[in-house]
């Protein structure tokens, strides 16, 4: 045993320090979960604050705003998931039909660009385009005669989900096609040739060969994404949201942040995070079970 340790001391040195770093920044914060069961105050710290049991969770489940925010979180990640999934497959299929290599590469390069642009810039562009005063969307709609007055997109909450989904779709559409294009490129060419011989048209080849070929990968990615449904970001909501649409734009993380830093109730904020992690684990475990049933695959 000792000799085994000695023979790989270099290997251990190459892994343990970084493992420690990882634990420091990802596991040590879990210690803070105790705050959810305390009446935490900054001055007393975790060691000095009195325990309060499950009272914050009881409050949480009585809080109407919490359900509203939970709804926003789930609806927005669900919408993004579906839009991205359908859009990426459709775009990959279209790109696959393009014969001119140069055109295909150009379209790919262009649609990848938004992935590399920060959400701050994206939000700036989105807000600018939707602005009631000189924004391109309102301008075009007015010129085409669909509306007489500019629409106040960002001040009506009911628009927010659509705007948020479109913005994310625009940002990640091209990037998400990469994997599907690779899968299509890896499909057996004999199948297409056989279909040609049998006189299949483009649509038939797409429907009977490309799409079934994509399905295993697509289902796998969909299942994995479902596991992360509650974990989706808050950057875009933070940047696009404002006081007028907050009933539709606020998500769990932002609610927790707001409660902790604006109101000063840290314990409640942490209780929200704990709840979120519990749901996340539940989703991942069930999704993993679904994935195993679905095929010979383990998510981890």
């Amino acid at each position: 045993m000792y000799r085994k340790w000695l023979s790989q001391y270099q290997l251990l040195l190459m892994s343990i320090p970084f493992m420690a770093l990882l634990i420091l920044f990802t596991y040590v914060p879990l210690w803070g979960w105790i705050m959810a069961f305390q009446d935490y105050s900054l001055s007393k710290g975790i060691a000095g604050s009195p325990f309060s049991g499950f009272s914050h969770f009881a409050d949480l489940f009585r809080d109407d705003r919490f359900y509203l925010v939970l709804r926003n979180t789930m609806v927005m990640s669900g919408l993004s998931l579906v839009a991205d999934f359908v859009g990426a497959i459709a775009l990959a299929l279209l790109l696959n039909e393009v014969r001119a290599r140069f055109f295909k590469r150009t379209v790919q390069t262009i649609t990848y660009i938004p992935h590399f642009v920060s959400w701050v810039v994206m939000a700036n562009i989105v807000l600018g385009s939707l602005s009631p005063d000189g924004g391109i969307v309102n301008d075009v709609l007015m010129k085409l005669g669909f509306i007489d007055e500019p629409i106040l997109f960002m001040s009506k909450g009911s628009w927010f989900w659509a705007i948020h989904t479109m913005a994310g779709f625009w940002k990640e559409l091209g990037w998400s096609t990469i994997i599907y294009l690779a899968v299509i490129a890896g499909l057996n060419h004999d199948l297409y040739e056989a279909a040609d011989v049998d006189g299949a048209g483009r649509f038939q080849k797409m429907w009977h060969i490309s799409i079934p070929g994509l399905m295993p990968t697509a289902m796998l990615l969909l299942i994995l994404a479902t596991g992360n449904l509650i974990n989706t970001g808050y950057e875009s909501q933070f940047l696009l949201g404002n006081g007028l649409n907050i009933d539709y734009s606020q998500v769990l993380d932002l609610y927790a942040l707001d409660y902790s830093f604006s109101i000063g109730d840290y314990s409640y904020g942490v209780a929200i995070s704990v709840f979120k992690s519990a749901i996340s684990i539940l989703l991942v475990v069930s999704v993993n079970m679904a994935a195993r049933r679905f095929g010979d695959f383990k998510a981890f």
């Binding site: 990882l22 920044f25 990802t26 596991y27 040590v28 914060p29 879990l30 210690w31 803070g32 979960w33 705050m35 596991g227 992360n228 974990n231 993380d253 927790a256 942040l257 902790s260 840290y266 904020g269 942490v270 929200i272 995070s273 704990v274 979120k276 992690s277 996340s280 684990i281 991942v284 981890f300």
Partner: peptide, 16 residues
């Protein structure tokens, strides 16, 4: 792998 799916949340992280 576990860290991929959940984290302590923003506030404990902030305090850390």
């Amino acid at each position: 792998i576990v860290t991929l799916y959940f984290s302590g949340g923003l506030i404990p992280y902030f305090l850390l």
